[in-house]
Amino acid sequence: MSNATQSQDVESAPLFSARVTAAAALSICESLMLALNDRNILPEHEIVGVLRDAAAAHSNHPDATEDSAFHVEVASLINRIIRGGNSVRRDDAPSGRT
């Protein structure tokens, strides 16, 4: 099987589509949070609060017994985003703004 054929098979798979959708949604949300913070609409602590609420929703999800690994991983990713500051420009992190 050629690389081109293999690539087409992967790109047409439902899992690939779901990954693309998830990555796009995450990028859009992070960009919106940055814009809200840059324009002084939402301060950093409120953005972090939104992220913590989202993580808690997955940590305490009622279907956790059915799909607990999924919800644990979602909460873990959100908590890594909080620690990494991806969705807010922290005062102590380089922002690239002038």
Rank of each mutant, 00 (worst) to 15 (best):
T21I: 13
R97C: 15
V20E: 07
H61W: 03
L26K: 14
M1R: 00
R52I: 01
A55H: 00
S12P: 07
N37D: 15
R19V: 02
S31V: 06
S68P: 08
E30R: 07
S17F: 14
I82D: 04
F16C: 02
G85Y: 14
A13C: 07
D92C: 01
A56M: 04
A56P: 07
S7R: 09
E44Q: 14
E66S: 07
E73F: 01
A55G: 08
F16D: 02
L32I: 05
H61T: 04
H61M: 04
R39D: 07
E66K: 10
S59F: 05
I41P: 05
G96W: 13
A75R: 04
G85E: 12
G96Y: 09
A56H: 04
P94M: 12
L15I: 05
S87Y: 11
C29Q: 14
N3V: 03
E46S: 00
A4L: 01
D63P: 00
P62F: 10
S17E: 11
A57P: 12
T98H: 10
S7Q: 05
E11G: 11
I41E: 04
L42S: 10
D67H: 06
A55I: 05
S76H: 15
V10I: 13
S17W: 12
T5S: 10
L51E: 00
F16M: 01
S59Y: 03
L34Y: 04
S68C: 05
N79T: 12
L36D: 05
S27R: 09
V20S: 05
A93G: 02
A23T: 11
R39A: 07
S95N: 11
I41V: 12
R80I: 02
E66Q: 06
E73R: 00
N37I: 13
E66N: 11
A22W: 10
E30Y: 08
A13T: 14
G96D: 04
H45S: 10
R19S: 06
L26P: 10
D38Y: 06
I78W: 00
E11D: 11
R89K: 15
Q6A: 02
A18N: 07
N60T: 02
L32D: 03
A56L: 10
N60Q: 06
E46T: 01
I28V: 12
A24S: 06
I81P: 01
E11N: 15
D63L: 15
N40K: 06
N86P: 08
A56D: 03
I41H: 06
N37Y: 13
A25M: 12
A4K: 03
L77H: 09
V74E: 15
A4G: 02
A54G: 02
E11F: 11
F16A: 02
Q8S: 08
